[in-house]
Amino acid sequence: MTTTDRTADLFAYTLRLADDAAILGQRLGEWCGHAPTLEEDIGLANIALDHIGQARALYTYAGEVEGEGRDEDQLCFLRPERQFNNCLLVEQPNGDFAETILRQFFFSAFMLPLWRELKASKDETLAAIAAKAEKEAAYHLRHSAEWTIRLGDGTTESHERAQAAVDHLWPYTGELFEVDGVVERLAAAGIAVDPASLRDEWHATLREVLDEATLRLPPDGWFQTGGRSGRHSESFGHLLSEMQYMQRAWPGLRW
């Protein structure tokens, strides 16, 4: 394999991780000032800030790998919809508090082992980013798991809402484990993590928490796909038009 191919793969992989973090951070930021309690307003903002921080480090690195002089903001604010490669799960609208919590729980349960494995990446920058992100993901998982338990095993209404959130988000989780050429080649080279290897742990985490929450895990079956190749939900374009408004309306200025 040529160096150019390897560079293209690394750019694509880093960008996916960056897009996941940026888009989830964007969604969580929408909550600020509107959460169910003041304590939770602050808690959700902390998680959003972690994701935005991860996105910044990852975009910056992706720009370096690409070598065309694009910085974190050009990558985040000046790419069109079809060039974003985040998974569909993170772009799902906030919905009610249960949907936000379950989205975070499904994602963090996946990202915690992913960052842990990625610490051993042969790519030193990714390994360093992973080392920091692992601790953040561990707290996100704890926070969202504890809330999942309380919503699931709280009142009849909260149980119903939490189960509806599980059922609604479930079809978007299959994509987390998809492997394409980029991941396959980089995993073989010891740079990326093969997500298939995380599946058992992810399942075990879900089963444990959802059991305690008296929530039912839907059967595997049909899963949504498309995010990694830039085919997103309809709502995603609206997220981008809001997020990218300033850079699109006043191109090329410093802020």
């Binding site: 602050i42 926070h143 504890e146 309380r150």
Partner: peptide, 10 residues
């Protein structure tokens, strides 16, 4: 547990 998390976050 929620108190501990809130204290950490705040």
């Amino acid at each position: 547990e929620m108190a501990l998390q809130a204290a950490r976050d705040v």
